[in-house]
Amino acid sequence: MSGEKFPGGQKASYRVVLFYSTSGTLVAEKILKRERIEYKLIPVPRHLSSDCGICLRFLREDEGRVMEAIGGKVEIQDIHSL
């Protein structure tokens, strides 16, 4: 995961969703996997939070599907563009 390129130079084509706990993040990950939505588990970017946890990154155009899939199932802490 540490080799992951952060979107410093990339266009903001990604969104990240943050959860309150690692467990919550992994529950959401399972849902995205089941729904076959493309995602990546990444460390929470430092500018978003000083948390030491992880979050899910997905393509901006998938936001509607992501929200529908995890809405009401796992509590979302925050959602950001990268």
Partner: peptide, 18 residues
């Protein structure tokens, strides 16, 4: 250590707990 670090073994450990 699960959920303490963002690296792959930590995530794997957190998956086991989940």
């Amino acid at each position: 250590n699960p959920g303490r670090s963002g690296h792959r073994l930590s995530i794997e450990a957190a998956r086991i707990v989940l």
